[in-house]
């Protein structure tokens, strides 16, 4: 499986990378860990005359943990898992990253690649919508911020312009009640269904809740209705039922080799219940 030929560039600064991207337009693509792009190129489903490898740009690997958490786009899943500060400040990130692919892929795969390429099977986009994260995009005219909840337009279609590079992801410290629950057929598989849930409790009731689902539509699904269904409840059976019904109204799964639509809806319900129960226990 030999991919189509391309010219390889390894710029050492973001400016140099943006210049290359500007010069080559949609004939160029940035390369992060390559573990989505290279398989697509090997299958000849993607072809680019120029690949701009971001590995030498050190600025894209910074992790800053404060009230806001900011993660450079080239941070690998393995680096996310190894970072003690992140594990303490954003444990939902570790819980999700552990369920992505396998060890070899996590050494190469980056958070930036995971959120930017727009694959509905990827786990981080849904999680980022749950966290209400902000993506920072750098382009020829400077940087701009886009909410993760506004970023995804369709499968592989995002708000990123061809001449922009996603450079960082930021989100506030999350509520103590968290869970990332994923159903997959085997290690390394994409989700049949996955749910990211954050819950903040006060006086034995849900004060705030955020719910997002993965691989159940052509984009990640932030379900405002599912979160709202939990507000003011003690996550009892009726609240769980209401959250699942609201979520099922927001997803739009397609039949594929992971199962027919009815099965995916069923799995989505089971997974969301488990995620809410676990998040509530921790809240």
């Amino acid at each position: 499986m030999i991919p189509p030929a391309f010219d390889y560039h390894r710029p050492e600064s973001l400016d140099a990378a943006l210049k290359l991207l500007g010069a080559h337009g949609d004939e160029a693509r940035v390369l992060a860990g390559g573990h989505s792009l290279i398989p697509m190129m090997k299958l000849r489903m993607a072809e680019f005359a120029h690949l701009i490898d971001l590995q030498a740009i050190e600025d894209l690997r910074d992790i800053a943990v404060g009230d806001t958490i900011r993660i450079g786009a080239m941070t690998t899943q393995a680096e996310l898992l190894d970072h003690a500060g992140l594990a303490e400040a954003a444990p939902i990130l570790s819980e999700a990253a552990m369920q992505i692919a396998d060890p070899q892929v996590r050494y190469m795969g980056t958070i930036g690649g995971n959120v930017a390429n727009g694959d509905p099977g990827n786990d981080m986009p849904g999680l980022m919508q749950c966290l209400d994260a902000t993506y920072t995009l750098a382009g020829p005219d400077g940087t701009r911020d886009v909410s993760a909840r506004d970023f995804y337009e369709a499968a592989y279609m995002t708000a990123r312009e061809d001449d922009e590079i996603l450079v960082a992801i930021s989100f506030p410290r999350h509520a103590p009640g968290y869970a990332y629950e994923k159903q997959k057929r085997k290690i390394g598989d994409y989700a049949t269904a996955a749910a990211a849930v954050l819950i903040e409790a006060e006086g034995g009731k849900v004060k705030s809740a955020s719910v997002a689902m993965t691989n159940l539509s052509d984009v990640p699904v932030y379900s405002e209705g599912a979160g709202a269904a939990l507000l003011g409840t003690a996550c009892d059976a009726a609240a769980l039922d209401a959250a699942v019904i609201a979520m099922l109204g927001d997803i739009d799964p397609m039949e594929d080799n992971r199962g027919p639509v009815a099965f995916k809806q069923h799995v989505a319900g089971v997974i969301l219940r488990r995620a809410i129960e676990r998040a509530w226990k921790r809240a």
Binding site: M1, G34, D53, A78, M108
Partner: peptide, 24 residues
């Protein structure tokens, strides 16, 4: 990139060498 038979160690990381371009 599924089976791991091509695993090598690159700069301290286990990688599947079928999913790394020579240039990288």
């Amino acid at each position: 990139s599924h089976c791991g038979a091509c695993t090598v160690d690159m700069d301290g990381k286990s990688v599947k060498s079928c999913t790394v371009f020579a240039a990288q």
